[in-house]
Amino acid sequence: MKRGFDLVLATIALMVLAVPLLAIALLVRLTSPGPALYWSDRVGKNNVLFKMPKFRSMRIGTPAVATHLLDDPARHLTPIGSFLRTTSLDELPQLWSVLRGDMSFVGPRPALFNQDDLIALRTEQGVHRLVPGVTGWAQINGRDELPIPEKVELDAEYLRRRSFRFDLTILWLTLVRVSRRDGVSH
C-alpha cells in the first residue's frame, strides 16, 4: 500500500509541478554556472548507495559533506541557493527517486555516503532496513538542528510506529513545518 501511495502521489505531484520544476531548473542555470541538478550519493535501504537528485543550491566544487560541516556554508551558496533551501524547493527533484523506488515520501532521510557515524547508528537500530524518505519523523522534530544520536532515536521510533496513518500525520506536519520554514539550515 505504501509503494502504491508513493507512486500515485509522486505522479500527481510531478504533473502539477512540471512548470515550476522547469522554472526552478532554469533559474538555477541562469544564476550560476553548472547543471541545474546535483546528484548526491546517498545511503538507501539496506545501506545500498543510490544517486539522489536535488536542485543545485551550492556552487560547483563545494565539498560533499553535510552543510553544518562546512566552514562558511553561506560562502558556498548560489545566488538563489538560500531561497531554494529555506523553501525546501531544492528537494522537489526527489520525486524522481520516489518514482524509482529509491525513496518513499516518508522514512528516515537518506544519509550522505560519508556520514559513517549516522550510518553505523542506524544500522545498529535496524533503521537501515527502511526505504529512506523525502521527509520523516526526525525531519519534523528538529530537522537540521538535531544531533545525530537524537535523529537516530527518532528514526528508530518511526521504525517501531510506522503505519499509513502515521505517514499521513508526518506528511501533514511536514507541510506545516516547511510553510513556516522551521529548522532549515541555509
Rank of each mutant, 00 (worst) to 15 (best):
L130R: 14
H186L: 08
V65G: 03
A138V: 06
I170T: 06
R162K: 15
N114I: 00
M1A: 13
E150F: 02
I24P: 13
R181I: 01
L154Q: 07
N47D: 12
R143T: 04
F83L: 15
K51V: 00
A111E: 05
P20W: 05
V152N: 09
M15A: 15
V48N: 00
G34H: 06
K45W: 00
V28N: 05
L30F: 10
L112Y: 02
P110L: 01
D71H: 13
Q125K: 15
L146E: 11
T11C: 13
M52Q: 12
M103H: 08
S163D: 02
S97F: 00
P108I: 04
L168T: 02
A25R: 12
S40V: 14
Q125F: 08
P93D: 01
R122Q: 10
Q115I: 09
P79I: 04
S40F: 00
V16C: 06
L22R: 13
L37F: 14
F50S: 05
P33G: 07
L69Y: 02
F164Q: 13
I60R: 14
E91R: 12
S82A: 15
H68I: 12
L30P: 02
S82L: 09
N46R: 14
T169A: 04
L112G: 08
P132H: 11
S32P: 10
G44P: 09
I119D: 02
L168C: 14
E150G: 11
M58Y: 06
A10K: 09
S40Q: 15
L30C: 13
L14E: 07
L27R: 14
K51W: 06
T11Q: 11
I119E: 06
S185L: 15
D116G: 09
A23Y: 03
V178W: 09
D167G: 00
P79N: 05
L21Q: 09
P132A: 00
P147I: 05
F166V: 13
L89E: 06
L17E: 02
I12N: 05
E153M: 08
L112D: 03
K54E: 07
W96K: 11
N114Q: 08
R181Y: 02
P73S: 08
S185G: 14
G142R: 10
F5K: 09
K2S: 09
D6T: 03
Q125W: 00
K45G: 00
D41T: 06
A25W: 06
M15G: 12
L159G: 12
R180H: 14
F50W: 06
E124P: 01
Y158P: 08
Y38A: 06
G142W: 03
